[in-house]
Amino acid sequence: MKKCLGERMRGIIEILNTTFLNTPLYKIILAFIVLFIFLVFRKIFTLFVLSFFQKLSSKTKTDIDDKFFAAFKNPLRFLFVIAGIWGLFDYLNLKGEFLNHIIRGLLIFDIFWVMYNLVCEFEDWVYHLLGKYGKASRELASFLIKITKAFVVIIGIVAMLQEFGINVTGFIASLGLGGLAFALAAKDTAANLFGGIAILTDNIFKVGEWVKIGNAEGIVEDIGMRTTKIRAFDKRVIVVPNSVIAVSNVENFSRRDRRRVMMRIGLTYSTSVEDLNKLLNEIRSYLKNHPLVHKEPLLIYFDEYADSSLNIFCYFFTKTADWEKYLEIKEEINLEIKKTVEKYTSFAFPSNSVYFETPIKVEQ
């Protein structure tokens, strides 16, 4: 029995001493045990240290610490994997510049992993900050987030390639001709994109506002990163490229706080000067005391002698930009002016006087 056990032990020792790539098998096994130990430490670190900080951050009123914890959690756990890989190669005496490049490359990957996670965790903040400006700002926020993520990934890849001695600069330079062709092909798209950014940053208009851009007039229905959709008053949808908006005169009627009233009132020529003065003063007094009419400018004057009327010029502004409310105010004012005119005189209307001349008979 002992003889059999001794033979088995010698057999196992011979197997363990078997070399693979000039390294005894037992060393390879021990190296992987070192890696396994670091993975165990990683599990312990997750169960105790990370769980403690997670509970601690969940008790705070702000969610900033929660976001930072979520961004750092997995990269911190990955550090144990990097340490385990380093321990594995170090135990196998596979030291050298290549191992240093691998470890540094993994550390670079871990750092940019944290940066990428931070962008992901705080992207809802960007949506919240820009979302109040309408759909275009949400699209801009989405675009900025995607660009930032792509930037982090590209810089991370470039840093890792540089660590391994790959000349990325020469590779990028070789893409210059293709990049030029792509830039020319995407010229209009880029112009529309930056036009959309200009609409947001300059706060030209928002969804739901009444605007006029060139021949397009209506309510802004949608602001995209390439085009803006305007719903005309006859229910047509007008699609305007953002690059056109960026170089056009934009009239935003919804941003005004008033609407203009301008009209001429024609009175008959039979109106006396006394009645005309009373009429003008009464209209001025009524408008000055009206709660929905701006006090300045308020111009009510006997303006001209027309062909068939004495014309009063009226020019003032209502205190609303809403069209329906404006029409209600204007109707109320028109009815009051009609009452006042009929109190002193009457309205004139276009008329012509025809005179017939009786021929004189000459006696012969």
Results as ranks from 00 to 15, higher is better:
Tyr116Pro: 00
Asn117Gly: 02
Val119Leu: 08
Val119Cys: 04
Phe122Ala: 02
Glu123Pro: 00
His128Ser: 10
Gly131Glu: 08
Tyr133Ala: 08
Tyr133Trp: 09
Ala136Phe: 02
Arg138Val: 12
Arg138Leu: 15
Leu140Thr: 15
Leu140Gln: 11
Phe143Pro: 11
Lys146Met: 13
Lys146Ser: 15
Ile147Arg: 04
Ala150Pro: 00
Ile155Trp: 09
Gly156Ser: 09
Ile157Ala: 12
Val158Glu: 01
Val158Lys: 01
Ala159Glu: 03
Met160Trp: 01
Met160Phe: 07
Gln162Gly: 14
Gln162Ile: 00
Phe164Val: 14
Asn167Trp: 03
Asn167Ser: 14
Val168Asp: 08
Phe171Leu: 13
Ile172Cys: 06
Leu175Gly: 11
Gly176Val: 08
Leu177Pro: 09
Leu177Lys: 13
Gly178Pro: 10
Gly178Val: 14
Gly179Arg: 10
Gly179Ser: 14
Leu180Ala: 13
Phe182Thr: 15
Ala183Pro: 03
Leu184Gln: 08
Leu184His: 05
Leu184Met: 13
Ala185Gln: 06
Ala186Ile: 06
Asp188Ser: 07
Asp188Trp: 02
Thr189Gln: 06
Thr189Tyr: 09
Ala190Met: 12
Ala190Gly: 08
Ala191Ile: 02
Ala191Leu: 12
Asn192Arg: 01
Phe194Trp: 11
Gly196Gln: 04
Ile197Trp: 02
Ala198Pro: 00
Ala198Asp: 04
Ile199Thr: 03
Ile199Gln: 03
Leu200Ala: 07
Asp202Ala: 08
Asn203Met: 04
Asn203Lys: 14
Ile204Trp: 11
Phe205Thr: 08
Lys206Phe: 04
Gly208Pro: 03
Val211Tyr: 04
Lys212Val: 05
Gly214Cys: 06
Ala216Lys: 12
Gly218Val: 05
Ile219Pro: 10
Ile219His: 10
Val220Glu: 09
Asp222Lys: 14
Ile223Glu: 05
Ile223Lys: 12
Gly224Tyr: 06
Met225Cys: 04
Arg226Lys: 15
Thr227Ser: 13
Thr228Ser: 14
